[in-house]
Structures are given as C-alpha cells and as structure tokens.
C-alpha cells in the first residue's frame, strides 16, 4: 500500500498564482450553490449552538436527520454517477479523489470534535453565523484561520 506522507498533495503544487486569473463568470455558479446552502443552514437551524448541543446529548433527532438524509441523498447520487458514468457539463469524466488514511485523521477529528462542541459550528456554519448577524463569530473565524495556519506550520512535526 502506498502511503502518502504529505497530505498537502491534495492540491496542485504549481505555485504560479500570477498567471492564473480568477473568472467571475466561471465561479458565479458556486456562489449560487453557496447561497442555497447558507439559506438551508439558517432555515433548518443547523448553525445553532443549541442544535449541536441537543445532537451530542441525544435530546433531539433533528441534526441526525439532517446529516443522515444528506448522506443518503449523496450516496445514491454518487452511486448513480458511477453506474451511468455521467460526465460534467463540460463533458469531462467525473473522478472523485480517494482519501488516504493517516493517523492524523483520528487526532485531528478528536480536536475538531471538541471545537465543534464548543463553538457549535463546523467550518461552513461559522461563516453562516456571521451572515446571520452574529458578528462576534468573526473572532472565531480568525482563530480558525490561525489554527489552520498553525497546522500548516507544524505539519511535519505532527504524527500522521
């Protein structure tokens, strides 16, 4: 089994950021998908600290229902995409990069589990909380970015 020791291989090592231009036209569709997601986050109270508290204490089925249904719909979709070898709107074959196991997935997930409990949010909801008017959460995002930077800085010293 080949083991990838460098999890950063996920993104292209090509560092030529100057020649790559950012196309608004190309990316506007992702903004629209994001808007739909943001609306769902607020309307289904997924960004609520209380909903996460009730999930982790098994007081409410709500969050389990949301994640369970999302997983079911996603699994069926991915199965159908593979079965019928569907292509993207640009006619390219759909390839999903496999995730390679490393021990960091356990250590990192434990730390994330604590962070999720404390802040009541995973990365997506953090942004939605700010949009919903909880401006103090910008501080959480700042610290989340700081945490990300610290991980990047310490990566080679951490067990993977």
């Amino acid at each position: 089994m080949t083991e990838i020791t460098n999890p950063s291989d996920e993104f292209s090592a090509d560092t030529n950021t100057i020649t790559t231009s950012i196309s608004i036209k190309e990316n506007i569709k992702y903004l629209l998908v994001g808007i739909l997601f943001g609306i769902v986050f607020v309307k289904a109270e997924i960004i609520s600290w209380f909903r996460i508290y009730e999930m982790f204490t098994f007081r409410s089925f709500h969050m389990f229902g949301v994640i369970g249904t999302a997983l079911m719909v996603a699994t069926i979709s991915v199965f159908l995409i593979k079965k019928f070898k569907l292509k993207t709107i640009h006619g390219e074959a759909i390839v999903i990069k496999p995730k390679t196991f490393h021990k960091g997935q356990i250590f990192g997930s434990i730390l994330f589990g604590i962070g999720w409990t404390l802040s009541g949010a995973c990365p997506g909801p953090l942004f939605a909380q700010v949009g919903a008017g909880f401006i103090a959460i910008t501080v959480s995002i700042f610290f989340a970015l700081f945490g990300t930077w610290c991980y990047g800085y310490l990566k080679d010293k951490l067990p993977h």
Binding site: P7, E10, K99, H102, G104, Q105, I106, F107, G108, S109, I110, L111, F112, G113, I114, G115, W116, T117, L118, S119, G120, A121, C122, P123, L126, V139, S140, I141, F142, F143, A144, L145, F146, G147, T148, W149, C150, Y151, G152, L158
Partner: peptide, 13 residues
C-alpha cells in the same frame, strides 16, 4: 473553539 475547528479539520483532512 474556533482554533480547534481550524486546526482539527485540517489535521483530519
């Protein structure tokens, strides 16, 4: 909480 969300999710990939 914010720090651990950032650090943890990236460590976990």
């Amino acid at each position: 909480g914010g720090f651990l969300v950032g650090f943890g999710t990236r460590y976990a990939g």
